[in-house]
């Protein structure tokens, strides 16, 4: 790799990191796992003059349940998510997602915070976080801190609500109710590839009725896409096969794919339907106690 010239900073604390970002301005970039940023620097699509490495900030690396939320530190790696017992037991959708990101080498370094902060609609976590109604916690200069609803976070391709002098520190996910289930299904050309399309689905049931649903779609729009119509179709029903089929057609209509070497628009719409169908089916199964 032969990137442009840059200075490297390795702060010890979050405050120091934010101060650096604040002082250095837009020429500085946060470096987390580096597996999205460095490829862009390799191709010189990004030429930041300062890298602020946050991988040594140990206090950003936790997976815990607190105050009704699952809290993921921004620097939690994909492999940590993949191997966490808590995640496997209560949040299989996150395990589904981590497992289909890149390959083990990448997953050992790639961070969940970076996956979201990068704002790439091809990344896998954004759709999952939409389906999970996550909250993004962001810290800025002078101890400021704000919480951004996931629906307000993604603004366009590689563009998020994060300011240049802010660091994403945590992702909060509401702890699921008793009859909840989620699932992420991705169609890829080969393992480790970005999705042709993928669907994240979550369902909450009460007395056999779906009381809330989350459907997020990967790589079929300029940002991850929430399939609201599809969600609405499911809520208040028992999520029968017939309803699932209708909800999936709606998801396919909501998606905004463009044709590229992963597939034509027509094809991608077709598989969004299939993937949504399969994801809802599996989420329902999990919600009602199956696998």
């Amino acid at each position: 790799m032969i990137p442009g010239t840059f200075d490297y900073h390795s702060p010890d604390t979050l405050d120091e990191a934010i101060k650096l970002l604040n002082d250095l301005g837009e020429d500085a970039k946060v470096l987390a796992g580096g597996h999205s940023l460095l490829p862009m620097m390799k191709w010189r699509l990004a030429e930041p003059t300062h890298l602020v490495d946050i991988s040594r900030l140990s206090d950003l690396d936790y997976i815990k349940e607190e105050n009704g939320y699952l809290c993921l530190g921004a620097m939690v790696t994909e492999s940590a998510l993949e191997n966490s017992e808590l995640i496997a037991a209560k949040y299989p959708i996150l395990k589904d997602t981590s497992e289909v990101i890149a390959d083990p080498l990448v997953r050992n370094l790639a961070s969940v915070g970076g996956n979201i902060a990068h704002g790439d609609p091809a990344n896998d976590h954004p759709a999952t976080m939409l389906a999970l109604n996550a909250i993004v916690v962001v810290c800025g200069p002078n101890g400021s801190k704000r919480e951004i609803n996931i629906d307000d976070f993604f603004l366009g391709p590689l563009w998020t609500a994060l300011q240049d002098n802010e660091i994403l520190t945590e992702i909060k996910i509401p702890i699921p109710k008793q009859y909840s289930g989620g699932c992420y299904i991705k169609l890829e050309r080969k393992v480790g590839d970005y999705a042709i399309a993928a669907c994240a689905a979550t369902l909450d049931f009460e007395n056999g009725q779906c009381i809330s649903a989350g459907i997020g779609l990967t790589n079929v729009g300029p940002t991850p896409v929430r399939a609201s119509d599809s969600q609405n179709m499911l809520v208040g029903t028992d999520v029968s096969d017939e309803i699932i089929e209708k909800a999936s057609v709606l998801a396919s209509e909501t998606s905004q794919p463009v044709g590229d070497h992963r597939g034509s628009e027509e094809y991608k719409r077709g598989v969004v339907k299939t993937l949504t169908e399969r994801a809802i089916m599996k989420a329902k199964n999990r919600a009602l106690g199956g696998n």
Binding site: P39, D103, R189, K190, V191, G192, D193, Y194, H261
Partner: peptide, 11 residues
């Protein structure tokens, strides 16, 4: 390598 689809072991 991102765009050109080389097969991998799981194929």
């Amino acid at each position: 390598m991102l765009d050109y689809t080389m097969p991998r072991a799981d194929n």
